[in-house]
Design a protein around this nucleic acid. Sequence first.
DNA 1: GATAATAACCTGTCATACAGGTTTTGAGGG
DNA 2: CCCTCAAAACCTGTATGACAGGTTATTATC
Lengths: 239, 239
Amino acid sequence: MQEQTDPPGEPSPGLVSTAIQAITQHIRSEGLAPGDPLPSEAAMTRQLNVSRTVVREAFRSLSAMRLIDMSAGRRATVAKLDTGAMSMVIEHGITTQQISVQQVYDVRRTIEMRTVALAALRRTDQEAAAIAQSARLMRENFTNPEAVMEHDIAFHEAIAAASHNPVFSLIVTAFSGVTRRTWVIGWRTRSSDEAQLKMIKGHEDIADAILKGDPRLAAEHMAEHFDKSVKALLDAGIA
Amino acid sequence: MQEQTDPPGEPSPGLVSTAIQAITQHIRSEGLAPGDPLPSEAAMTRQLNVSRTVVREAFRSLSAMRLIDMSAGRRATVAKLDTGAMSMVIEHGITTQQISVQQVYDVRRTIEMRTVALAALRRTDQEAAAIAQSARLMRENFTNPEAVMEHDIAFHEAIAAASHNPVFSLIVTAFSGVTRRTWVIGWRTRSSDEAQLKMIKGHEDIADAILKGDPRLAAEHMAEHFDKSVKALLDAGIA
DNA sequence: GATAATAACCTGTCATACAGGTTTTGAGGG
DNA sequence: CCCTCAAAACCTGTATGACAGGTTATTATC
């Protein structure tokens, strides 16, 4: 069923790349859905006429990108959409100073102005409650920065989820890692309790607007929130 | 210099994951920049006390995500920001029907409304010329759909580049793969030459607005462009 | 001191082995 | 006939050793 006799013309971009393509191609052509099993490594080894080493490196690569799930004993399965790979790319860009935190915030602002408007229009009651809940937990734990941060992140992810567009969720979640590394800096800049509570109030305003189903108001509050956050980071000297 | 004697407490998420973390950690702690060389596989093998198999799978995984570059004989090096991984994630989402083309277009619209405005404000003369050039090439090759598509894609990527925020470029470029799979459908919907030329005119309007440095006008034209594109896809029955 | 040959090092691929997991099979008992 | 449970078959995770071929460092020669 296959003639893998190294057809001439290819400068051989490596067997592993070929194997990766074969696997993704398999997913595509078989129309596999998340959870569906992939061929075993042995099967792939036979099909491609390469060593198990090559096949394994291909599987492992796809697993690293979270396109497939692997676990001992079981065959690999098609994975649900996951933000793992994107997060790593963004983190890599940050740590190697190819992108700045401020640039990430600009993108976040752009995207979240949209997610918050969509959320106001499309949120279910349950989603609105979850968003409000995150804001409330920020206030309740406000003496514990770490907790506030996690609820803040959950807040933004919940809004993205309520936009009912998983691509937005994907991107917003991918940025969460960066947020975890810089959040505290912004928090510290808001030195007084008053300033910190005001920032929390901003979140509650957003949640309210979403609950009321007012996309314009929600976007307005979100813009304000981001402008203040960026200002806080700039005050702290973040490039 | 290392005590990798399997400290208890970890439920062992796999040696490869550990190795991946060790490598990214190395990049971080050494402050490596793109092009800088990483330790050899043998060195990593010794440092982590694992087999070369494990280390290789870790390197290969990072290479698949384009965080590092590998080539035979040479040591791996830190990679420049690349859209490879993101593209694969998006494609995976599309082929497994976890996200729809329309959802991608909504995200593109959101982002490109911003990139076009930024481009109008920050573009260099050279960038403005490149953008205009892509639009012109669309018109010149307009009997060759494939060519028009490639210049269309280049057009949008050039605008993202002119925004001077690599994160936008990253995302826009990641979507190019999806565009390549659906573009023709939208083109065919514009059955008459007139409709097709009108669509090209839309691109020229955008390029002009960027050249003039008018962000508002540019965003307006971009919005119009996307609305028409989405309409074309919907007319063609794309979910 | 420049150049070319050589050695040392490095990655790419293969074969094999074995330790656990997981699913399948099948025998035996109710 | 169905249920239970243990053995078998299959699968992935990791280790080891080997060798081809590419790249860099070394060294000998002119």
